[in-house]
């Protein structure tokens, strides 16, 4: 899958992904898919306050590989299709559901919703909707850690191919390159930015070729292949962690759902769905487990049932939780209450 001679081949340096690592990643991938399926069902049932549901179907192998490659003390700014990565990084199903179902106990307490969630103090940054805007924020966290003398930390952030067309992407990557930050920029080329195909998005042969212009090390990966994603992301994160500067990972895959659940994605070329990048990473990884005798069909079925049970229990819990109350809400956007317009908090 390498598209440039200058690229580092992860396979040459990184050993094969172990059974344990693969299984651990697979379980997060499966849980993320099951959670997404439940969110879609809740959306169709009209149970999502605000109405928006954005799923990661087809991108979980890549996403989980980012989250699982990071560790405590690292920084992670995921995007809308990173449910799997979020779980692997340490988010719980309950936390995700609280934000999607509008529980006041959620991380954003109803002030922001669905994919806009995080815990900044834990290095888990909540995305804003403006694409590319999180890159420089991760850069800033990494610069601050450097000020404080912290070493061996990595920042990772994710974007679709559409987000690479923004000025913020250019500024963010250039800044990371100038500061030689331990940033891993992960681009999921899922072929469509909402409805816009790649032919209307960029004119270069591969987005990985942009790495050279920013002083990044490029990596390309088949985003449908969990083992490859684990290898390449593990390698890119290890390079960043050991002082080799910023890394750009570009994954080829296909979004297997609409932009959101309101979108039937009728614009997706059927030939892409039939092509190699149109394969479902969950099905491929299940085959991988069976072929290698790492799991039996019965185990796969049991794991799915267990994931469904965990999600159902979390939904039952969160649906009983209170929604935010506009009458008791603290309508103050400032930490310093005495500077609030219209009285202090």
């Amino acid at each position: 899958m390498l598209s440039s001679v200058s690229e580092v081949s992860a396979a040459e340096i990184v050993p094969q992904v172990s059974k344990d690592e693969y299984l651990r990643a697979f379980r997060w991938l499966l849980l993320a898919r099951v959670l997404d399926e439940k969110l879609a069902a809740l959306y169709r049932a009209g149970k999502i306050p605000g109405g928006g549901v954005y799923l990661g179907k087809g991108q979980e192998a890549l996403s989980v590989s980012v989250g699982i490659s990071l560790r405590t003390g690292d920084v992670y700014a995921p995007l809308i299709r990173d449910g799997a990565g979020r779980l692997a990084f340490g988010e719980t199903v309950v936390e995700a559901l609280r934000n999607c179902l509008g529980s006041v106990l959620g991380p954003m307490r109803g002030r922001d919703g669905n994919v806009h969630r995080g815990r900044p103090r834990d290095g888990y940054l909540p995305m804003i909707s403006h694409l590319g805007a999180m890159i420089s924020v991760v850069n800033g966290v990494l610069m601050a850690k450097r000020f404080k003398g912290q070493k061996g930390v990595v920042g990772a952030t994710c974007l679709g191919e559409g987000g690479t067309s923004t000025g913020a992407f250019h500024e963010g990557l250039n800044q990371a390159g100038v500061e030689r930050l331990p940033l891993v920029m992960v681009v999921a080329n899922n072929q469509y930015a909402y409805s816009t195909p790649t032919s209307r998005q960029f004119a270069c042969k591969s987005l990985a070729d942009r790495a050279q212009g920013y002083g990044f090390t490029p990596h390309s990966v088949d985003g449908t292949n969990l083992a490859e994603c684990l290898k390449v992301l593990g390698h890119a994160v290890a390079l960043a962690r050991t002082g080799n500067g910023p890394q750009l990972v570009v994954a080829s895959l296909l979004r297997l759902c609409g932009h959101g659940e309101h979108d039937d994605a009728s614009y997706i070329d059927p030939r892409l769905k039939e092509s190699e990048i149109g394969r479902d990473c969950l099905e491929l990884s299940e085959e991988h487990l069976l072929v290698n005798s790492w799991a039996s069909k019965q185990e796969l079925s049991q794991w799915r049932t267990a994931a469904q049970r965990a999600v159902e229990e979390a939904v039952a819990l969160v649906q009983k939780e209170p929604s935010p109350d506009p009458y008791t809400e603290n309508w103050c956007a400032l930490q310093t209450g005495r500077f609030a317009e219209g009285g202090s908090k």
Binding site: P120, R121, L125, A133, M134, I135, S136, V137, V138, N139, G140, V141, L142, M143, A144, F147, A168, E171, G172, Q175
Partner: peptide, 8 residues
């Protein structure tokens, strides 16, 4: 953006 990250 970097200032926001550093402030976090």
């Amino acid at each position: 953006g970097a200032a926001v990250g550093a402030a976090i």
